[in-house]
Design a protein around this nucleic acid. Structure first.
Length: 445
DNA sequence: TCTGGGGTCCTAGGACCC
DNA sequence: TCTGGGGTCCTAGGACCC
């Protein structure tokens, strides 16, 4: 197996950058984007970061402060962000054979199968994206996805916007170490790292300035220094909860982490944490998914601006979320077996009595037919609804999804054909006149 | 007064079976 | 009076990501 070289392309302050594209006058001003109901901050420009805006922070708490600093505030416009994301991802996809679109604003690329210098390829790509879309990006390069993520943190801080990790050293010694590692958790892809990684090593780096991890793996002194300067909470996959647990056993930096025994890691932060550690050591352990796996659930939910008490209003909301979810289901050419509805009161309220519940309803046969989905969701909601509570949020989740194509036979059973053509017609109308042009009403039984 | 939405994966514990 | 053990499957809850 070949040495993996992975880059992470990350759009800078994506939502805020989208808002700035057509408003050059915002240059240099703090920009924040708010979540649904203008509830909390979901994105901010670097100027907004400097004045102390934080992701997830409730807007009302920081509103005055933002105003004082002349901040441009936007309600989120997901249709716009999705559209711009698509353009960015198209450019990235055209640049390499193996691309994993990881989120709306990030993608991993495999560089090892491309001819030419990885850094140069990335520089090209960065210029291309910025020129064609107006969205600034940072690119981190490493030998694993987790390393690429780590490199991207540095990339964001430097003017060039591209940073290649000064290598986990890829030497015969490392390959020998891995062969003798008897860890039962050692991933399949861990062997053979004999290919050199010279290309993205810094020019002044020489093989003598190396450091041997407790595991026996060899890394460069430079990489060691970076690990020592990085708190564990900055590592992809390790958030505040796990960092707290790690701090208790005196693991504070990424270097502490990679020098900890596998068994201790697994015990403290579970198998996913262990994979993260291997990746930091330079052993690919998180799969590169250039073919996106089938989705397992589709969810649609919304918090109410003001709480809701009555069942009819909840039923109406559920119908609307079913419509959104079913549209996505059909877009993905999937059908679902089960519809799950959940409701909850406002857990931030200290006055309201608290209640939350969920119920799942099996469909008589797997389908993407909206009226059947709504009817199942209504049945589920009625099972869990209790009068007298102030409801804050309702969610619909479609689960047990399967591919529509595997179900051709049943197409001709129990009126499925009719349902199919009805849904196609509905889609055409929505496509032409907008999502709200046509709605689903259910007959009372 | 006002605190998002949409995903994934892992683990522990219970039910059930032989 | 003594009261198995191991496997599988499911669910709830907790953790992470952006």
């Amino acid at each position: 197996m070949k040495k993996q070289i992975t880059a992470l392309v990350d759009c800078n302050s994506f939502y805020a950058s989208c808002e700035k594209i057509f408003r050059p006058e915002l240059e240099g001003r703090p920009v924040v984007v708010l979540s649904n109901n203008d509830g909390c901050i979901v994105a901010m420009s670097k100027e907004a970061k400097t004045i102390g805006a934080k992701r997830g922070e409730p807007y009302y708490k920081i509103k005055k402060h933002l105003e004082k600093n002349n901040t441009a505030v936007f309600s989120s416009n997901y249709a716009l962000y999705a559209d711009i994301s698509k353009r960015v991802m198209n450019i990235i996809s055209a640049s390499a054979a193996e691309v994993e679109i990881y989120s709306i604003d990030e993608a991993f690329i495999r560089l090892d199968n491309l001819p030419g210098d990885p850094v140069k390829i990335c520089r090209h790509l960065k210029i291309n994206i910025e020129k064609q879309t107006g969205i600034p990006v940072s690119i981190g390069i490493g030998t694993t996805k987790t390393q690429a993520k780590l490199a991207a943190l540095t990339a964001k801080k430097i003017p060039e916007g591209i940073f290649a990790l000064p290598g986990t050293f890829s030497t015969a010694e490392n390959s020998e170490t891995e062969k003798t590692l008897k860890s039962e958790y050692l991933p399949v892809s861990a062997d053979d790292t004999t290919k050199s990684f010279k290309r993205i090593q810094a020019p002044h780096e020489n093989k003598k300035s190396v450091y041997t991890l407790n595991s026996g793996r060899i890394i460069t002194e430079e990489y060691k220094k970076l690990l020592a300067e990085t708190p564990v909470s900055k590592i992809w996959g390790i958030s505040s909860g796990l960092s707290g647990r790690l701090a208790k056993i005196n693991i504070k930096t990424a270097l502490d982490l990679v020098n900890t025994k596998d068994a201790v890691i697994k015990k403290t932060i579970s198998i996913s944490g262990l994979r993260t550690v291997w990746e930091l050591r330079g052993i690919p352990s998180i799969e590169f998914e250039d073919v996106p796996p089938d989705r397992k659930t589709i969810m649609s939910s919304r918090s109410f601006k003001t709480t809701v008490k009555e069942l009819p209003e909840l039923l109406k909301a559920v119908s609307a979320y079913c419509t959104t979810a079913a549209a996505k289901l059909r877009e993905n050419r999937l059908i679902c077996k089960t519809v799950e509805v959940s409701i909850r009161t406002n857990y931030f309220s200290s006055i309201d009595r608290q209640y939350k519940a969920k119920a799942a309803e099996e469909l008589t046969e797997p389908t993407s037919y909206l009226p059947d989905i709504i009817s199942a969701a209504h049945t589920a909601l009625k099972k869990i609804y209790r009068p007298g509570f102030n409801y804050k949020k309702v969610s619909v989740r479609l689960i047990n999804l399967e591919s529509k194509n595997g179900r051709q036979i049943s197409l001709f059973c129990s009126g499925t054909e009719k349902k199919e053509s009805l849904m196609s017609a509905v889609e055409e109308i929505s496509g032409r006149y907008g999502r709200d042009a046509i709605k689903c009403g259910l007959l009372k039984k």
